[in-house]
Amino acid sequence: MNPATFQTLMLAATLFAIGIVGFLSRKNMILMFLSVELMLAAVAMNFIAFGAHYQNYQGQLFAVLILTIASCEAAIGLALVVSLFKRKATLDIAAWSDLRETDREANVEVPVEQNEPIESYPVLTPAGTDPLVNPVRVSKDGALDTLKA
């Protein structure tokens, strides 16, 4: 096989695998959607590679069609994501786990165990005069005037 064709096909396979890993592991709905777009772009790259291999323009033509389908998908998918966001005010995909199969257990969000709160916090030394003890007032001629309590 032509090394350039082989390399392009391998790149497409890698991008497809990256897309499926992103789709399975991400929890943000928009990023899951972007992963699907990545997989679609990888498939379009296969068409380009074979089109360049055979010096044939039909591969490019099918890639143009895929590009069109991808933009349709992006429009509808984003509209769906926005309407889902308006329902629950979160992009978390686990918020929609009610839609699962009835015999499945809920994919309950296990809260990430936070570190123990820090025992002591740094303390800043108060500087200047305490305004409750020594209120500062601006007199009529603009000078600062300190009133003794």
């Binding site: 695998a17 990256i18 499926i20 890993v21 399975l24 592991s25 991400r26 929890k27 943000n28 979160t90 992009l91 978390d92 995909i93 686990a94 994919n107 969000e109 809260p111 990430v112």
Partner: peptide, 19 residues
Amino acid sequence: LQLYDLSRNAPVWSIVIGM
């Protein structure tokens, strides 16, 4: 950062599937 962006959904399994 939202909480759902900090963690991944079964990262090991999805990487295994991807590989």
